[in-house]
Structures are given as C-alpha cells and as structure tokens.
Simulated scan of single mutants.
Amino acid sequence: MPLPPKTVADCIDGSDENPKFCSRLNRCGEGEFYCGGNEPRCIPVTEVNNGVSDCENTDLKSPLNDTHSPWKTDDSLKCFQLLGSGSFGKVYEAIDQTDVVNPNVAVKCVDIRKTLRCSAASNFSTRDVGYFAAVLNEIVVLSGLSNDHVVRYISCWAEAEGTEKLDRFQLQAYVDSLLLNSASSTGLMWVPPSNIYIKMELCQFTLKYFLENHQLIPNFANGHVAAIFKDIATGLSYIHSKGFIHRDIKPGNIFCKVHPICGCIWKMGDLGLATRDLDKTFGQVGTDCYRSPEMKRGFGYTTKADMWSLGLVFLELVQQDGNGFNVAQVSEKLHNLGISRHRYLYLKEAVVQERFAIWVKVINKLVNPDEMKRISSTELEVALNRIYY
C-alpha cells in the first residue's frame, strides 16, 4: 500500500496513490454515503437500503443524524461517523460548526455506567469512585499539554440524565466531592453522569494501521523511518519534560495527522494511563508485551519505562518479518540479553532489516534491560539528529 498523500491537492487531481485516504479526506457530497473497505467510494443514497450499503465487502459509514448522535447537549457538534470502539467506549468523527478553520474533530465517548456496570442509582465502593476519577486522568493530562507532536485536546464535558451538562471544572468538582466522601465510607449512594466526552483534534490513522500496510510500499526508506522516529521522539520528550510518564506506548496509541502542506505529522496520544513522574512509580499497567523489565518485575520505574516501550515500537517499523513479527517473543529475548554487544548482534542479525541497519545502535540503547543505562527521551532526540542516511 502506498504512502498517504502529502497534500490535499493530491486527492483532488486524481493522481494520488491512496484512494482510501482521499475518500475519507474529501468526504462525500450531499445525497451520498461514504462506503469504506478495500475500495472506498461515495455511493448515491438511492443505492442504500435502510442504511445498509450495497457495496460488496465494505462497510457503510454515513453521517449520523441528530437522533443518533451520542451527545445531546451540543447542537453545533454534528456526528459524522464512528471511528472505532474499545473497552473505554467509542470514538466518533464529528463536525464542529463553530470552528471554521479546523471543523473536523474526534470525540471520545466514555460510557461511565457501562464501564462501571451501574444503574441510575446504586451502592458503590470507593474502588468504583477511584475508577471514575481515573477516567478524568486523560483530560487532566491532555489539557496541560500543547505540542505539535501530541494529540491536541480541545474540550470535554459530561452529560447526566436528560440534558444536564457538566463542563470540565464542574465534573472535576463532582469527582473531588465523591473522593472526599469516600474517604470515610465503605459504600456510597451516587449517580454518575451517563457519558464523558473528550473532544480532540482528528488524526487520519494510527501507527498500528501504518505498520500493517507499510511493508507493501516499495520505496519505504530510511528517510521515512527518520521522519517517524523524530516526530514520536519529540512528542514523548515533551510529555516527559512536563513531568509525565505515558505508560502505554504502543503503535495503536501513536497517531498520524495528514497536514495539507506539511504532510504526515506523527503524534503521541491516548494518555489515559499517564501518571506523574515521581522518584519511583509502581504498578503494572499498559500492554504487557510493551512493558519494561522493571515494570514487569514489580519494581519502581521512571520515564525510562517509556523508552523501553518506544524501542519495541521502533523495532516494529524496521523489522524483517513483516506482519509475522512477534513483539512478545522479541521483548522476552531482549529481557535476557544483558550484555550490550549481544543485544546489538541479535538486533542486527535476527531482527532488523539490513537496509535499516543504521538504526540498530540507537534501538539497542532503548531496549537496554538496565534502566540506568537506557537512554532518556532527550538523549534520544540528540542521537536521532546525529544519524545520517
């Protein structure tokens, strides 16, 4: 699969190599539905039966009308389509009619009651309240960050029964009161908002999606690798400079924004598990195969835990086995290779493609099992700028 277009104009002149991206970028005209899949295209309404597409082997993605919009208190935000879903809830693409410059946004919808498996009024433990507070963590972290290589936070709100709306500060005050009351109570009677919404900038795809397709790009070279590595390193270094550990770095949490002039801009996102960088942080979180050795062993860790995860992500981009690459097996092997020279030879001979050999040295420094010898995000930025290709 070819690289995404570098400019919007590529999608207009008919010469672009990536019709899937162009179809999503340009949307569909009035009276048409977007038909996704292997051959995405816009189809007339007359070819749609009760909202089900007649496109062969494709899924219809059409603008949702107001009655299907998951939020009820913001008429200026029009839901366009469902982008994805997970254990936390769903992410939608929406049109913000109040923003004439960047109207297309992503809205993460966290279904609180479904997550807590609760009804309108029930008896909850302090653990439930603690989880509810944890849901706000991504909002708190994102709202304090502003960098071209971190997914941009725009706003958030919560909705209770009916049309009651809580902004970020009202929501925070509500949770603080719950935590205060729970300090001396084993059970609480409280009614949580039904949903929390986080509005963010819209990105076109994730690094996970890119990894599943980039092996088919015949001209994928060190220049592309350098651009991706540097963008990600810049975003992570910024997060660390603000005193946070990401704790869930993996391809699915790294996003690409396709800018009409600048081309692909890679960004760190999904900071729901981020925490303050103290002297030592404890707790096994994130995706198991990307966890650092110190986290897996239950030891305290710092921002260096993120660097191990990032090293594995970098490996996925330059590895030999295509979609057959097993992150868990490689991670386990690296855990047991304490001597730097042995790791270097293993990476160079058994993991990394020969044409990407110039990246082995820096990756070897990222996947050092010894946290004290592992390079920091600031050192990584310097190291990447010294690599010539």
Rank of each mutant, 00 (worst) to 15 (best):
residue 89 G to N: 05
residue 105 V to L: 09
residue 124 F to N: 03
residue 119 S to L: 15
residue 88 F to A: 07
residue 61 K to S: 05
residue 93 E to S: 12
residue 159 E to H: 00
residue 86 G to M: 11
residue 189 M to V: 04
residue 76 S to L: 12
residue 134 A to P: 08
residue 132 F to N: 02
residue 159 E to S: 02
residue 61 K to I: 14
residue 173 A to T: 06
residue 82 L to F: 02
residue 173 A to I: 02
residue 112 I to F: 10
residue 135 V to R: 06
residue 77 L to K: 01
residue 110 V to L: 15
residue 93 E to A: 12
residue 74 D to V: 00
residue 129 V to M: 10
residue 175 V to F: 02
residue 109 C to P: 04
residue 66 D to N: 12
residue 93 E to M: 15
residue 62 S to Y: 00
residue 108 K to P: 12
residue 167 D to Q: 00
residue 120 A to W: 07
residue 145 L to F: 14
residue 127 R to E: 13
residue 147 N to D: 13
residue 62 S to V: 00
residue 68 H to F: 15
residue 148 D to I: 06
residue 65 N to F: 06
residue 105 V to S: 01
residue 193 P to G: 06
residue 139 I to Q: 01
residue 99 D to M: 14
residue 72 K to L: 15
residue 113 R to T: 01
residue 78 K to Y: 00
residue 127 R to F: 11
residue 95 I to E: 13
residue 191 V to G: 04
residue 151 V to F: 14
residue 120 A to C: 11
residue 175 V to I: 06
residue 170 Q to F: 11
residue 110 V to T: 09
residue 66 D to I: 13
residue 191 V to K: 13
residue 117 R to P: 02
residue 142 L to T: 05
residue 186 T to R: 15
residue 101 V to G: 07
residue 76 S to R: 08
residue 197 Y to R: 10
residue 187 G to N: 08
residue 176 D to K: 14
residue 150 V to I: 15
residue 195 N to G: 08
residue 119 S to K: 11
residue 111 D to Y: 04
residue 58 T to I: 07
residue 194 S to G: 06
residue 192 P to V: 07
residue 174 Y to T: 09
residue 188 L to S: 15
residue 144 G to F: 07
residue 142 L to E: 02
residue 118 C to E: 02
residue 71 W to F: 01
residue 180 L to C: 01
residue 179 L to W: 04
residue 78 K to T: 01
residue 87 S to W: 05
residue 170 Q to D: 02
residue 98 T to L: 13
residue 157 W to Y: 03
residue 76 S to E: 14
residue 107 V to Y: 10
residue 130 G to Y: 02
residue 148 D to R: 08
residue 124 F to Y: 09
residue 161 E to F: 08
residue 101 V to F: 12
residue 197 Y to N: 13
residue 190 W to Y: 12
residue 165 K to F: 06
residue 77 L to T: 03
residue 162 G to S: 14
residue 122 S to K: 08
residue 63 P to I: 00
residue 150 V to W: 15
residue 165 K to Y: 06
residue 72 K to A: 14
residue 172 Q to V: 05
residue 73 T to A: 11
residue 143 S to A: 08
residue 115 T to Y: 14
residue 131 Y to K: 03
residue 154 I to P: 03
residue 87 S to P: 00
residue 111 D to W: 07
residue 197 Y to E: 13
residue 135 V to N: 09
residue 99 D to K: 14
residue 189 M to Y: 07
residue 127 R to Q: 12
residue 173 A to N: 14
residue 167 D to L: 10
residue 85 S to L: 05
residue 89 G to M: 00
residue 138 E to H: 10
residue 144 G to I: 10
